[in-house]
């Protein structure tokens, strides 16, 4: 249980870091090229993916806890 929670948390953090880095890199590139700021759609997409992963991990933990406590 703890192992699953720990690995899920690490995975989620890695994905969030990766997504943030990608968005930040994209933003920097666009700023350097003077082509405007990061696309709102890209930012929303990265946000949804990260939030889905965190929400999904939270749900799976809750599900497991509920089953174990039965």
């Amino acid at each position: 249980m703890k192992r699953i929670a720990a690995s899920t948390t690490v995975l989620v953090l890695l994905v969030m870091m990766g997504a943030t880095q990608l968005v930040a890199k994209d933003k920097d590139d666009k700023d350097k090229d003077d082509r405007g700021s990061v696309n709102a759609t890209e930012l929303a997409g990265a946000g949804v993916i990260a939030a889905v992963m965190v929400g999904g991990a939270g749900y799976l933990l809750l599900r497991r806890r509920t089953r174990l406590s039965k």
Binding site: L43, G47, A51, V54, G55, L62, R63, T66
Partner: peptide, 25 residues
């Protein structure tokens, strides 16, 4: 405000799930 929005929405989902999960099953 953009980043905080996602954290907030995820927290709302998890809170609502915490309150209703057993009721749904």
């Amino acid at each position: 405000h953009l980043e905080a929005g996602w954290v907030y929405v995820t927290a709302v989902f998890l809170l609502s799930l915490l309150l209703s999960y057993r009721w749904l099953l």
